Amino acid sequence: MGKRQEAALITKQKIIEATKALLEVKSVDDINIEEITNKAGVAKGSFYTYFKRKEDVVSVIAFMDYEIIRDIVMVSTDSIYEQICVYLKKSVQVIEDKSLQVAQLWMKSVVAPIEGETAGIMKYQYDMDTIGEILLRAVDHGELKKDTPVDEIKSNIVNTYYGAVVSWCIMSGEKGKLIKSIDDFCKDALRVIIEEYVCHE
């Protein structure tokens, strides 16, 4: 990697870190791009080299958390049921920790994206791909039957997850409610969905 590319990565990382720090003390609406660049120690124009809006930086930050969760699940030797529960529960914990406002921005970008905005759709596809991969690995390892309808099951799981997040956003993001909703889903419906296809030896 050349010096110019390295400098570009450092600048982008400074913007991300500055935004993270500001989100710890302010809501997304209360942060402006000038604040981000001042905290990062970079020119305001540098921001627009990497991001169109402050919400784009927030999406990058959120994705970093989800990638860590995905990595944890992908190296797990737990049952298929436990792997999916861990992914869902840790994901909603991130959502509750990031704030209602961030979750509302994310949902808006899924349901009614601004022209050219792809973060919400990318996150939805990311979740579909991750749950699908977890299920396919379980089929390959003989934990789930070969005829398991992976696409149907992953859609059911991810759509339930997104429905819980949307409901939580509508109900003003009461602390703990989203986590409880996903926990209830895991205890009841998810177990039933998975159990039908588990290979019993």
Rank of each mutant, 00 (worst) to 15 (best):
T49Q: 12
R53P: 01
I68S: 06
G45Q: 15
Y66E: 12
V58C: 02
V42P: 11
T49M: 09
M64V: 12
Y66P: 02
R53Y: 08
V42F: 09
F51Q: 05
S46L: 06
A62M: 13
R53H: 10
E55T: 13
V42W: 08
Y48R: 07
K44M: 06
E55H: 07
V58I: 11
G45C: 09
Y48K: 06
F63P: 05
G41V: 06
E67K: 14
F51K: 05
V42E: 11
F51R: 04
S59Y: 12
K52F: 02
E55F: 00
K52D: 12
S59F: 09
K52H: 10
R53M: 02
S46C: 10
I69P: 03
Y48L: 03
T49F: 03
K54C: 01
I69F: 02
I68R: 13
Y66G: 03
A43Y: 13
D65Q: 14
F47D: 04
K44R: 15
A43L: 13
T49Y: 07
V58Y: 01
K44I: 05
M64R: 15
K52G: 05
Y66Q: 11
D65P: 04
I61Q: 07
Y50V: 00
V60N: 11
R53A: 04
G45N: 15
V58M: 06
I68K: 15
F63T: 11
Y50K: 00
I61T: 08
D56C: 06
A40V: 03
V42Q: 12
S46T: 10
K54N: 07
E67V: 08
D65N: 14
Y50M: 01
V57M: 03
A40K: 03
E67R: 15
R53N: 09
E67F: 11
F51M: 04
V58G: 01
Y50E: 04
V42M: 10
E67P: 02
K52R: 13
Y50F: 12
S46Y: 04
Y66F: 14
V42A: 09
F51D: 06
I69Q: 06
K44T: 14
R53W: 01
I69K: 04
G41A: 06
Y50L: 00
V60E: 15
D65M: 07
I61N: 04
A43V: 07
Y50D: 05
A62I: 10
A43D: 15
V57G: 05
F51T: 01
V42Y: 10
S46F: 02
D65R: 14
I68Q: 13
F63G: 11
R53L: 04
A62K: 11
V58D: 07
F47L: 03
A40T: 08
A62R: 14
D56Q: 11
F47H: 03
R53T: 09
A40Y: 05
F63Q: 11
V60M: 10
F63S: 13
T49K: 14
K44C: 06
F47R: 00
E67S: 09
S59H: 12
V57Y: 02
E67T: 10
G45S: 15
Y66I: 03
F51S: 05
I69N: 09
Y50I: 00
M64G: 14
R53S: 04
A43E: 15
R53K: 13
K52T: 09
I69H: 07
I68T: 12
D65I: 02
A40P: 06
S59I: 00
D56M: 03
